[in-house]
Design a protein around this nucleic acid. Structure first.
Lengths: 198, 198
DNA sequence: CCGTTTGTTGACCGATCGGTCAAGAACGCC
DNA sequence: GGCGTTCTTGACCGATCGGTCAACAAACGG
């Protein structure tokens, strides 16, 4: 849905995105009805369909916005680093911190990964992030800092560690302490050393 | 729902569990209706509610069965190992291999983790598995094979690596080759060395 | 001040949802 | 053979779903 929006329109659209994102994250995408969203904002149902073609498109828009935000944070974090390993570490830290802060987005990413209707909306963003991380891993290999191995796969392993930790935090099983994050980061940085040569 | 079932009844119940599990995994839990399940089996709707109180209870039953099966596999894999590190490695391998084979269960676990209605159904099983793995990690620490650190957190990190790899396999982004599994296992075994001491 | 575009209302639509239930068929057991 | 339990049928229920639309209000642009 592409529409010329006035400032008022942009604001309304933003309200819908924000409110729906929270409801989707808390209650689930499918169990949250369009009626619930518009009632929550105190507006008529037509408002929803003025800004979005469908409930599905709304979630896609939310996911895209989240990915953009995460990507920005990652790029900013990496900017000042000099070595590949430092870029890797800062990237991991940025991802973890963002995911902890942006609980809503993170939960929606997790859900979207389980529903075929939305996996493709996640694919491109994840691909970019993984390719980026894998490049730094490959750089570290070229510099002889870590043994040669499947760089993209190692990048994915680090992503797995990070997102699992964040999940624990959001489930309340782990406090988001510096120690916990350090442990996860340390696990990743030593993990990339673990190419089986024997 | 506890009911005295004849052999015929047990078989019907098994059919419902199996068919529903596949539909839930392929199409999603919420989008799959009870009507769709009974039609797929060519039976009346009453059959469903003879064996299960609700759609929700059905998924819980499926999850419980999956967790039991995984747990069995893990225990069997660890049985013959002599050292803590070997137990850790075999446990990881067993989890990865089971999750790759049992695509349906794995996908449902992933979904259940995103829906508050089912997270508690997962909690107990995960808790047991994590506690078990953490014990072996702690044993390795006591034996001086790896530095002291938060053992349960390291166990979770390994779980994160494993399940993320499996996800890639099921999404078709990685072939379930021995090399890929070895890389993930190596990442974990080196990862536990990564306590930040500096 | 008026015409056009942007934004909003809420009744309404057909479809489908999870779940119920009275009736009866198939089986197990003696 | 007959009696009780297990199992099956499918019409039916009220509620709710995502989505439409004609009418109307508010803001913008000239």
């Amino acid at each position: 849905m592409d529409r010329r929006l006035t400032q008022r329109g942009e604001e309304r659209r933003r309200q819908l995105l924000e409110f729906a994102a929270e409801r989707f994250a808390d209650n689930g995408y499918h169990p949250t009805s369009v009626a619930e969203i518009v009632e929550g904002l105190g507006v008529g149902k037509g408002v929803f369909y003025w800004y979005f073609d469908s409930k599905e498109e709304l979630l896609r828009a939310i996911l895209a916005q989240g990915q953009l935000d995460l990507r920005r944070r990652q790029r900013a974090a990496i900017a000042g680093a000099d070595t590949p390993m430092e870029r890797i570490e800062r990237g991991i830290r940025a991802s973890i911190e963002w995911s902890i802060e942006e609980r809503t987005f993170f939960r929606l990413f997790q859900f979207a990964a389980t529903d075929d209707r939305f996996t493709d909306a996640l694919r491109k963003g994840e691909q970019v992030a993984i390719r980026d991380a894998a490049r730094h891993v490959a750089d570290a290999m070229a510099a002889g800092e870590i043994p040669d191995a499947d760089a993209p796969l190692l990048a994915h392993a680090m992503l797995g560690v990070s997102s699992h930790l964040v999940q624990l935090v959001h489930r309340g099983l782990v406090e988001p302490s510096a120690e916990a994050i350090d442990t996860a980061v340390g696990f990743c940085l030593y993990g990339v050393l673990g190419t089986r040569l024997a």
